[in-house]
Amino acid sequence: MTNPYLLDVRGLHKSFGHTEVLAGIDFQVAERELVFVIGPSGSGKSTLLRCCNLLEEPTSGTVTVDGVDLTAPGVDINKMRQRIGMVFQSFNLYPHMTASGNVTLALRKVLKQGRAEAAETALAALERVGMADKAEAFPNELSGGQQQRVAIARALALEPKIMLFDEPTSALDPELVGSVLKVMQDMRESGMTMVVVSHEMQFARAAADRVTFIDGGLIVEEGPPEQMFSNPTFPRTREFLARVAHA
C-alpha cells in the first residue's frame, strides 16, 4: 500500500529532559500542498519541523517522508535529507564560502557531482531565487533577504520533494520580507510541497492550502485559511490570532 501523504507524522512525542515539547502529534501533508504551522512561541512548532528531517530525534512516534519511515533502523538519513529541504530563521549560510560555494557543497559531497556540474546546478538554483548575479558574493556582502534567498537555493538545488521553512522571515527587516515571500510564492506555483512555520498571516491567507494551529505540544485545530482566520473553532486559536493581529 502506498502512502497518500508525502509527509506523514504519527504519534510524535519529543521531550528535552523532563520537559515534553511535543505531546503526540499526528500531522500529514499531501504532495503539492502548502501547510502553514502557527502557534505561540514555545508551542513546539520549530521542534515539529526539526523532527521532520530528524535534526531532532523524536522520543517516540514515526516520521514517514516519501514512503520511507525515517525513524526505522538502518535508514540512510543523510540520503533522505536530500529530499527534505530546510530553511532556517537565521539563514545559517556558511560565512567562509561564496553564495555559489554554499549551494555546491552538498551537491559535491552528497550527490557527488563534479565541480563544473555542481556549479551549473547551483547557478540554476540561484537563478530561481533571483540571486544568480550574486553567485560569487560572500554572505557578509549580502542583505538578510538576499542571504535567505541563497539559503533557499542551497536547499532547492538538491531537488527536494518537500521544503521545511522555520520562520524564514522573522530575522529580516520588514522591507526585505517581500523578496523572500515572493520566492516562496513562486515555489508554490511550481508545485513544491511546503511546510511553513511563520507569523506572516497575510501570506498564509493568500498562499496556504491549510493552516495548523499548535499549542502546548498538540495540534489544537487545522483547516483552510479562510475558516481558520475568520471562524476558528477553539477559543485558544481565537486568542492567539487576535494577539498576532495586534502585534
Partner: peptide, 18 residues
Amino acid sequence: IDKGQWQAARSTGLTHIQ
C-alpha cells in the same frame, strides 16, 4: 561555531564528519 551551521549542513544531507 554556531549550532545553526551544523543544522544547515546536516539538513542538506552532509554527514557529521563531512
